[in-house]
Measured scan of single mutants.
Amino acid sequence: ELVLALYDYQEKSPREVTMKKGDILTLLNSTNKDWWKVEVNDRQGFVPASYVKKLD
């Protein structure tokens, strides 16, 4: 499943990933309501769920 980055996000820990507004990311896990695991540029990590939106 793919998600769209709604905002820029700068990683604050090694478990997170940086994304730019408009990026298309692969959603790996959305079981946590606050932090979703995504893959971007061959890196996996977490981003705030409120910063991304699922693409239909």
Rank of each mutant, 00 (worst) to 15 (best):
Q44D: 07
L27I: 06
A49I: 03
D42V: 06
W35K: 02
K53L: 12
D8R: 02
W35A: 02
D8I: 01
L25M: 13
Y9M: 01
Q44V: 14
A5G: 04
V52E: 02
L4V: 15
Y7A: 10
K54A: 09
N32G: 10
D8Q: 03
R15V: 11
K21Y: 04
V52L: 15
R15W: 15
L28S: 03
K21W: 03
K20P: 01
A49R: 10
V40S: 15
E1S: 13
D8E: 05
L6N: 03
R15C: 15
K37N: 07
I24R: 06
V52F: 06
L4E: 12
L27R: 00
D34C: 14
V52N: 01
R43K: 11
Q10F: 15
I24C: 07
Y51I: 08
V40L: 15
L2R: 14
S13Y: 07
P48K: 04
I24K: 06
R15P: 06
D34V: 12
D23K: 03
L25K: 00
K33C: 11
E16D: 06
K37E: 14
D56E: 13
N32M: 09
W36C: 04
T26I: 15
E39L: 11
D34L: 13
S13E: 08
K12W: 04
Y9W: 10
I24V: 11
W35F: 07
K37G: 05
V38E: 00
K53I: 15
S50T: 09
G45K: 02
K20L: 08
V40W: 07
Y9F: 07
D56S: 13
V38H: 00
T18A: 07
E16K: 05
D23P: 00
K33L: 10
K37H: 11
V17G: 02
L55P: 04
S30L: 04
F46C: 12
P48V: 02
K37L: 15
G45I: 05
L28M: 07
P48N: 03
P48Y: 02
K20E: 06
N41G: 15
Q10H: 15
L55H: 06
N41D: 14
P48Q: 02
I24Q: 05
Y7W: 10
L25T: 01
K54I: 14
G22K: 02
L28T: 05
K21P: 03
V38P: 00
V3T: 03
K21I: 06
E11P: 14
Q10A: 13
T26Q: 13
T31K: 10
N32A: 09
N29M: 08
W35C: 06
P14D: 13
L6F: 03
T31E: 14
K12G: 09
W36V: 08
R43H: 08
V40H: 15
N29W: 07
A49S: 13
Y51N: 07
R43G: 04
W36Y: 07
K53S: 12
Q44K: 09
K53T: 14
N41M: 13
E16L: 05
T26L: 15
V38D: 00
L2G: 04
E11W: 05
L6T: 04
G45S: 02
L4H: 05
N41P: 11
Q44A: 12
L28Q: 04
G22Q: 02
S50N: 14
Q44T: 11
S13M: 08
K33R: 13
R15N: 13
S50Q: 12
L25W: 03
D34E: 11
V47D: 02
